[in-house]
Simulated scan of single mutants.
Amino acid sequence: MPELPPPSARPSPAPAPPAVRAEAVTALRAAGCVFAEDEAELILATAGTPHEVTVLVERRAAGLPLEQVLGWAAFHGLRIAVEPGVFVPRRRTEFLVDQALAQVPDASVVVDLCCGTGAVGTALATALGPVELHAADIDPAAVCCARRNVGAVGGRVHEGDLFEALPAALRGRVDILAANVPYVPTDEVALLPSEARDHEPSTALDGGADGLDVLRRVAAGAPDWLTPGGCLLVETSARQAPAALAAFAAAGLAARLAASEELYAHVVLGTRRPGAR
């Protein structure tokens, strides 16, 4: 596919001629995009020239996630930078952010584990005001992308496997530990839409045999990093929620489930009890 010039070299988008708009909609509709008109508007608003419109439409028609085509995703009122090959933040995960803010509204130390683009940590820091923000991911591409977002709000991003990536000085100091872990069972990854299956890293999707392998590791390690009263929040599915709650309880956390019917979102919250390890 043709390459786009770097963003700094692109002119500001101008109103597209009707013919360019119509061609974009037609091409997207032919590719099976259900919301072809809406997607065309976003592409037209992002592209600087008719040529760039063509390039972006071709990328979308080839199956790339819209957010990777645009280079950004809307999340919790923010425009989050998204790069190719990085997990795209889902709207339902905004519910996790809201739950964290409600649970620890005065948080001063925030960690975004399995951060992907860093959308969760960026949203939390934006809402909370000045905080010490750390994010971590095992995928180098995600770390690179997250630095664009997390760095913009004064945070730091670390590369590594879960807690191994974090500075030791954070132990026992974390108020909010948000972990949008992979939770798709291995046998079900092949059933995901091609946008996710073919264009997002398996490390951000595959959660092991029952989808809870990474969740269990995070729950087991969390008490050592949370401050008394600090909260771990992890997204899961309705089917997995009972087992996820059990994993939190086994780690010594006071666990509960929050759910949003509107977003079809399920978040397990675990609070470190005062006096716990």
Rank of each mutant, 00 (worst) to 15 (best):
P201K: 09
D137Q: 04
V214L: 02
P84R: 03
S194N: 06
A61W: 14
T227P: 11
A22R: 14
A100P: 15
G118H: 07
A246C: 03
A136C: 03
A102F: 00
L191V: 01
R217K: 13
E235T: 01
A45I: 03
A254M: 06
T93F: 09
D106Y: 00
Q103I: 01
D175I: 00
P223D: 14
E39F: 11
E188F: 02
E67I: 07
T54V: 14
I176Y: 06
A276G: 10
E262M: 09
A9F: 11
R60V: 06
T54A: 13
R91I: 15
V111S: 10
L124A: 06
L101G: 02
T203N: 10
G121A: 07
G32I: 15
F248T: 03
V53C: 15
G63M: 08
A209R: 14
F95G: 09
A251P: 00
A204R: 02
V218G: 00
V174F: 07
V110C: 05
L64A: 07
L177F: 02
M1R: 13
L64W: 13
G155F: 02
E132W: 11
E52V: 08
V174I: 15
D210M: 04
S202H: 05
L78T: 06
V268K: 07
D137F: 06
D210F: 11
A249D: 07
L269Y: 00
R29C: 14
V120K: 12
G208M: 11
V131L: 11
H51G: 07
T236G: 12
T122I: 01
L263A: 15
